[in-house]
Design a protein around this nucleic acid. Sequence first.
DNA 1: TGATACTCATTCGCATACAAACGAAAAAAT
DNA 2: ATTTTTTCGTTTGTATGCGAATGAGTATCA
Lengths: 148, 148
Amino acid sequence: MQKSREDRQAAAPEYHVDRQVGFFLRQANQRHVAIFANAIGDKLTTTQWSALSKLKEIQPCSQNQLGRETAMDVATIKGVVDRLVKRGFVATAPDRNDGRRVVLSLTEDGLAVIAVNVGAAVSATEETLAPLTSGERMMFLELLQKIC
Amino acid sequence: MQKSREDRQAAAPEYHVDRQVGFFLRQANQRHVAIFANAIGDKLTTTQWSALSKLKEIQPCSQNQLGRETAMDVATIKGVVDRLVKRGFVATAPDRNDGRRVVLSLTEDGLAVIAVNVGAAVSATEETLAPLTSGERMMFLELLQKIC
DNA sequence: TGATACTCATTCGCATACAAACGAAAAAAT
DNA sequence: ATTTTTTCGTTTGTATGCGAATGAGTATCA
């Protein structure tokens, strides 16, 4: 049997994009974002939800700090916060000690929108992991964390 | 010991964004994108690389078909293809049989840039999975595919 | 044949995402 | 006390990513 031209010399394994981690990571993320958008009623994105939820834990805090806690770039977190402020979920105030800082906190509407949507967020997580068994989920989350 | 106000009634487990799949998926994807950008010399993004690699496999094909094969929206694949055309990696031609279609194919530069960078792409995959053992990688990829 | 449905490509609006550069302010080092 | 470095917020530019709408071409079926 004739060997293919590829195999004759170096026997280099063929490269297939659709078998690489990056390809799957992008798709898995896309799927989750879609599921989340569908589950949530208030038109909140996954990043906005991350910012809101984290802010609830650590408020009051500066904009950049919130960005670091949610793994967002300074330019990214600014856009996210701007939109949340515009919608009245987040309030800003100048810091007395530091002239550069903008202190962020949740408004009542912000707290309310979190309370209303936690259930949907949990459901979104659930639906994303639905193809996996309970044991697989534990394993998957563990491995996923390792490559973050 | 006093029970917290939360636990007293419903015993609802606390919600932490930074323990949800979505949070990790976004971060893992970000990390891989950064690794890839760093490994590749020709300023190709992960999506551009996907489009190029897939096009090499299935060319000639229409723009929408390439989008489907690479899991990209019609609007997204258009932008990606536009940039690849502008850089001379992809050529377009009208389809004789179908007046709507635009037939895509790789140029010589396109083939060359793939050949030059396959090694870097493989390295990027390798580096992304570096925190995992060989066995863990197999397991991880299997589970990751299931939630795509 | 003619109406209907589908497909393809394009465009608009919105929301990440990051690099890079900037001025202002604070902290650390000398 | 002055210099250096770091941090904070902002803006610009480039590149995804999706929903929705549009127009043009094709296919289907009554």
